[in-house]
Design a binder for these strands. Structure first.
Length: 534
DNA sequence: TTCCTGTTGTATAC
DNA sequence: GTATACAACAGGAA
């Protein structure tokens, strides 16, 4: 029987380094490259307007690239399980190919589809190409569980050798296309998806494989920059991005992580002196790999409850604070500028994410990281399920990172790299005439200064919703308490998880009594604070 | 059990 | 720019 394939694009929205697309094309008489607009993502995906635009741009570009190899993209709306069963029959399909996806919804969906394919006598070919390695191999090599530190991840992947080299584009992809293809299978625009294009922000990072590869080229040409790149030393509030902004392209698979990895590797080979993980550009790809791996095997990875690697913290519920944070009106210009850039442009620097995430959670507002994660999920072009959950756990000191006493200052942190507050003036124009000495703390400006700057605090720009210096030590103590209340991990499986056993108290009597004193004092502070809050 | 390390804290002193 | 106190966490290696 002649081979007739469907290649199902989900992530991996590219024709370079796409082994499952190659598998679809091999010896086939007909290949149908499809993308299914699954209503699940509209209902549960929390996709903001800018990311919708990015996706549609990406699909248009994918269609254009497929045309170059004599094919077309077929975009179909519907539930994948139903769409595929129709198409198997309609197109007399023998083979289905797709890229492996490790996210929970994808795993369930794909298991369903595999069953349907089996019932229909359709062969299924799945390839790993979204991550550098097959995350299952990393888990296996680590003894059946995910590595929980970056160091450990590094050790494990070093045992696996270099990630596979990217595969070449398919040279031909024979696709029968009807005259009215665009009418039936064309890429929709925002309006036809009932989205309002006027709500989009400026398009600084257009979607698509073509843009991804040219952006990668631009970045890799800066050899010296690549070889000296140290992530923690890049600036969160520069007016031009200080990092690559390849993340949205990696998220959708417009860019293959392996392609990027091996491009870096070539550059490193030619330049003896270069930075190394975790801070280097290669290190950034390994962070992605790390979080994908942990996310692929950890139950309830995107929530606190029933997530075995997440510390249970009794976060506050405060809808007003949450809304102020989301909408960029906390009264802290650095925080509000970042949240404005996020909402309007869909990308913010990693350290800017740190600053606002710390502020929302353990630093200032003491609101659950899950709430912050939802907001990032909506606004970020690069919102990536594993990375988003992992980084929110990191910043809230719920997992991976535990030094909860290291708190970012919403005033001091931004000053380090933008003394004049140009970034704040750009994203919060209401503050653009505030004198530099007050730009990070405009509430401290004398009224006359505020009048002259055309920005009255409390009227034109909000007063701070919390006092950072007062709330910070209180929150640190609340975190200490939450850590202390953790179930003892060393106890047996039977008692484990019941939350009865407590970690031993501090070692010496002296410290013990000192600690007890501080804690009770702080507890009183917390109680007083709560009362005042009401 | 102890010791070391951990991408990216802040404020202060020199 | 670099060192240090702050008050002190967890995971993992030794």
């Amino acid at each position: 029987m002649a081979k007739r394939s469907i290649h199902w694009f989900r992530k991996g929205l590219r024709i370079h380094d796409n082994p499952s697309l190659i598998a679809a094309c091999e010896n086939a008489v007909d290949v149908k490259p499809i993308f299914i607009l699954d209503p699940w993502f509209s209902e549960n995906g929390n996709v903001g307007i800018n990311r919708w635009r990015f996706l549609l741009q990406t699909l248009l570009d994918l269609d254009a690239n497929l045309k170059k190899i004599n094919s077309r993209l077929f975009v179909i709306k519907g539930k994948p399980q139903e769409v595929l069963i129709d198409l198997f029959k309609k197109w007399n399909i023998t083979t289905l190919t797709y890229e492996l996806d490790t996210e929970p919804y994808a795993k369930l969906r794909d298991a369903d589809v595999d069953d349907l394919a089996r019932e229909c006598g359709v062969e299924v070919i799945r390839c790993v190409s979204h991550t550098l390695y097959d995350t299952k191999r990393i888990v296996d090599k680590n003894g059946g569980s995910a590595p929980l530190t970056y160091k450990r991840l590094q050790t494990v992947v070093s045992m696996l050798g270099l990630p596979p080299k990217p595969v070449a584009e398919p040279s031909k992809c024979p696709t029968a296309v009807s005259m009215n293809h665009d009418q039936h299978y064309g890429v929709p625009d925002l309006k036809s998806l009932h989205k309002n294009p006027n709500e989009c922000g400026p398009c600084l990072f257009p979607g698509g494989e073509t843009e991804a590869l040219s952006r990668l080229d631009r970045m890799m040409k800066k050899t010296n920059w690549v070889c000296t790149f140290e992530k923690p030393k890049t600036e969160p509030n520069s007016l031009q991005p200080s990092t690559t902004v390849l993340s949205p392209y990696l998220k959708f698979g417009c860019l293959s992580a392996r392609t990027m990895y091996h491009r870096l590797h070539e550059i490193y080979k030619q330049n003896k002196k270069h930075t190394a993980p975790p801070v280097s550009l290669e290190g950034q790809l390994l962070w992605r790999e790390f979080f994908y791996t942990v996310g692929s095997v950890t139950p309830n990875f995107d929530q606190m409850v029933d997530n075995p690697i997440c510390i249970q913290i009794p976060w506050d519920t405060n809808v007003e604070f949450l809304a102020a944070w989301k909408q960029g009106r906390t009264g802290y210009p650095f925080i509000d500028a970042i949240m404005t850039q996020l909402r309007e442009e869909g990308w913010i620097h990693h350290l800017a994410r740190h600053a606002v995430a710390c502020f929302l959670t353990r630093g200032d507002l003491y609101i659950s990281w899950e709430e912050g994660k939802k907001v990032f999920e909506e606004y970020l072009l690069d919102a990536d399920w594993s990375l988003n959950a992992a980084n929110w756990m990191w910043l809230s000191a719920s997992s991976f990172f535990y030094q909860y006493f290291r708190v970012y200052s919403p005033i001091a942190f931004g000053k380090k790299t933008d003394k004049d507050g140009s970034y704040i003036r750009k994203y919060l124009p209401v503050l653009k005439n505030m004198p530099t000495q007050y730009i990070y703390e405009p509430w401290t400006a004398p009224l006359k200064v505020q009048e002259k700057a055309g920005c009255i605090i409390g009227k034109d720009y909000p007063k701070p919703i919390v006092e950072h210096d007062k709330i910070r030590p209180i929150n640190i103590q609340r975190m200490a308490q939450a850590y202390k209340n953790r179930p003892d991990k060393s106890c047996s499986g039977e008692t484990k998880g019941k939350g009865q056993k407590r970690k031993p108290e501090l070692k010496t009597e002296e410290r013990n009594s000192k600690k007890a004193k501080t804690t009770s004092k702080t507890n009183k502070k917390i109680t007083d604070f709560m009362k005042e809050g009401k």
